[in-house]
């Protein structure tokens, strides 16, 4: 139990769940949202509504996705059931790249505009990106074991993903080792920007270094080697993961925002 005196009114806060009452009393939430990118959306709909809507979409999407993967799309003739992991592997990799791109854009925006909101979005995107990067690596090794008879191959795209995972884990470590604030936000933004710009070079060099992976069958303009049903399922998976990304991002951003707001409130009370 924490007893916090705010200005002349005293507020009794029992635990984190009552935090809303502080925000409402101080009208800080409005204040904080005032100059953020989400203002417009916030006016139309509350965070809770969007979050619930997205959450619902993700739930339905995932159920449909599982049905499509296991009941509808044909089992691969050469690889068998193992090939089904592709529907997790590819969207995970896709989502991680999407996250890193979002982080890159918001890092640039932060350095330009210096709005805390952009820093929060960049941080949240990197966290999600690192998780999906990890997922892509794990599913990749599970897939590699029966297919190439090894857990790890220095295949170009897997290797790039691994390096990406390392760079952005470094980003998160930098966050842990520094104090929150403008300096942390600036330094992390710089790392995110150079990390992102390095990706094409890393990929190119790794491709030249060694290529074992099957060429990117989905997006290559050559003849339609991939089955229509497989393709549709894959695209559907990727879409569901993208919505999942949005859902996670929105919630993580809101969580971070509330956390920082809470810390700021506590700090002013401290005086």
């Amino acid at each position: 139990m924490v007893l916090i005196g705010l200005e002349r009114n005293s507020l009794r806060v029992t635990n984190g769940s009552n935090i809303h009452s502080i925000f409402n009393t101080l009208n800080l939430q409005r204040l904080f949202l005032k100059d953020t990118a989400l203002t417009l959306i916030d006016r139309i709909m509350s965070f809770n509504k969007i979050s619930r809507l997205l959450g619902f979409a993700v739930l339905i999407g995932l159920i449909l996705d599982v049905l499509m993967i296991f009941a509808w799309s044909p089992t691969d003739s050469s690889m068998g059931w193992v090939q089904k992991i592709m529907y997790i592997h590819v969207p995970s990799a896709w989502t991680s790249f999407l996250s890193i791109t979002v982080a890159f854009l918001f890092s640039l925006l932060y350095l330009w505009k210096r709005r805390e909101q952009f820093d929060i979005i960049a941080l949240s995107a990197v966290e999600i990106g690192v998780i999906f990067c990890g997922l892509a690596l794990i599913t990749g090794s599970i897939w590699a074991r029966p297919t190439w008879n090894t857990y790890w191959t220095w295949d170009a795209r897997l290797t790039t993903t691994l390096i990406l995972f390392l760079i952005f884990s470094g980003y998160l470590l930098l966050r842990r080792f520094s104090e929150p604030g403008d300096q942390q936000a600036r330094l992390s933004a710089v790392v995110a920007i150079i990390g992102f710009l390095d990706i094409p070079l890393i990929h190119l060099s790794v491709v030249w270094w060694r290529t074992l992976h099957q060429p990117s069958t989905v997006f290559s303009p050559k003849q339609n080697v991939i089955d229509d049903q497989i393709l549709v399922t894959l695209i559907f998976s990727v879409s569901v993961f993208s919505i999942l990304f949005l859902f996670l991002l929105l919630n993580r951003v809101e969580l971070e925002r509330r956390n920082r707001l809470y810390m700021k409130t506590v700090m002013t009370v401290d005086e």
Binding site: Y171, L174, I202
Partner: peptide, 8 residues
């Protein structure tokens, strides 16, 4: 931070 970035 540095070593992954300079792999190329």
């Amino acid at each position: 931070l540095l070593f992954p970035l300079i792999i190329p």
